[in-house]
Design a protein around this nucleic acid. Structure first.
Lengths: 247, 247
DNA sequence: TAATTTGAAAAAATCGATATTATTCCCGTA
DNA sequence: TACGGGAATAATATCGATTTTTTCAAATTA
């Protein structure tokens, strides 16, 4: 296989905006206008500031995000493939709509992919991976899910650690593609969580569920771990579904 | 859940360029410059005209694809999320590199996802789906893989029908997301197939393999169908791997 | 009244020019 | 000779203006 190497480019750089993750890593500083706009738009769509189905007018966005036409359009193009934005030729962009049908699909697909990824991780993961799982679980357990006790106020740090725990679980699956897909679905799911306008807590003990998953993983009990993980997602999903139907 | 409906947009339009598929559907005619550039760039990357790792200079592409800066950059942005192009802030775009490691991952991940999708299809598919599978298999069997008998000359029609057969197999899995992922991986795989500079035929009878898969599907034998599908992919993969190593 | 046409306004798409950043290559120095 | 500084060059990123297309509503017609 021939490869053009007259052009000298640094070969490794897996942390740019093409990664569905880490949207706000270098949002300020030397990042390009496109990256900035991408990160901010993405955050605003996930958080629900930009409403599902909403038309995204270039001129409007230009003013809000303080950038020119090109960076805005490029950012929107990037978001299109992440399924956060829809593009229609000659008719511009809009925030991807949501539906309970799509949420069902999302939940289902996540379970399929994460189960496979988890089983592979359990089969392949070495002791360093085990340690990372333990550490991620511990760190997650050290912060409260809600900033206030009697009603729910999202805790950003919990969100970060929660995602990190789930990423770590499947990080030994040895397929960056599968991990990327899981990541995409995770972020889609967060969007639904935000949009549901979650007020009440889930009554069940989420921390205990994480602990149980962690134990099963360390025991290399793939069947149990997969079962726990899937039911973990499903109960969260059921809870969200109720919220979605109320609203 | 609130939804802004002051803006009137046609709600359904699932066939635009955001679909990783059908890149050249309306490539001519009223399609936008961006869509045209996207389709042509995509085709040229898959076919190997644009070499893996190659720097993609905007000015150059502008001339080749006869479009302005913005459409080219937008098209490249779309291609980055498809993993056909890499983007590095402030350093432009290049064709996504290939590696035998990545090919391994690709093959593995495809098997995981397609197996799941096929099992779901077999579980959920109705008689209309069965008929579509039969039809797709028949149509595939009616065209030769190579235009010439004694050496390999790619037959575009075979490619189209082959893809359609595989898409149809999993079309009853009831997850557009999973199908989209499979589609992405399929196209990535085609790229590797093209790049390997395939000359000789695989000696095995690919048509027979398709027939066997079809039979197992109609018999609703999920285990057998999955086994056949995975080994179908793996043998193609092994064959490609040899080609890759030779080159 | 319903359907169609027309035209003004709005928005998207596109372009070419400019500003910004990276790369290259030359030259002086250790 | 190897190294590092610093223009000169090349390429990217960005902007605002222009062109094209769509949208909306009023006017016309059957």
């Amino acid at each position: 296989m021939k490869q053009e190497d007259t052009e000298t480019i640094v070969p490794e750089m897996d942390d740019d905006i093409s990664t569905p993750d880490a949207p706000d890593r270098e949002t300020v500083g030397r990042a390009s206008m496109t990256s900035r706009a991408y990160a901010r738009l993405r955050a605003d769509i996930i958080s629900g500031v930009l409403v599902p189905g909403q038309k995204l007018k270039i001129e409007e966005l230009r003013q809000i995000y303080d950038a020119g036409t090109s960076p805005i359009r490029e950012a929107l193009s990037l978001l299109t493939s992440d399924h956060f934005v829809e593009r229609i030729d000659q008719r511009g962009f809009r925030v991807a709509p949501v539906s309970s049908k799509e949420f069902d699909e999302l939940l289902k697909t996540r379970c399929w992919l994460e189960e496979r990824a988890l089983r592979e991780s359990i089969a392949n993961g070495d002791s360093s991976w085990e340690e990372q799982v333990v550490l991620a679980a511990y760190r997650l357990s050290r912060v409260p899910r809600s900033q206030v006790d009697d009603h729910f106020v999202a805790n950003a740090e919990w969100e970060v650690r929660h995602k990190h725990f789930h990423v770590t679980l499947i990080s030994a699956c040895d397929s960056s593609m599968l991990m990327k897909f899981c990541d995409q679905l995770y972020d889609q799911n967060i969007r639904y969580r935000q949009l549901s306008g979650i007020q009440a807590y889930p009554s069940r003990d989420v921390t205990a569920e994480h602990g149980a998953i962690c134990d099963a993983v360390l025991a290399r009990d793939a069947d149990l771990a997969a079962k726990l993980l899937v039911s973990h997602y499903n109960s969260t999903g059921d809870f969200l579904k109720d919220q979605l139907e109320d609203a």
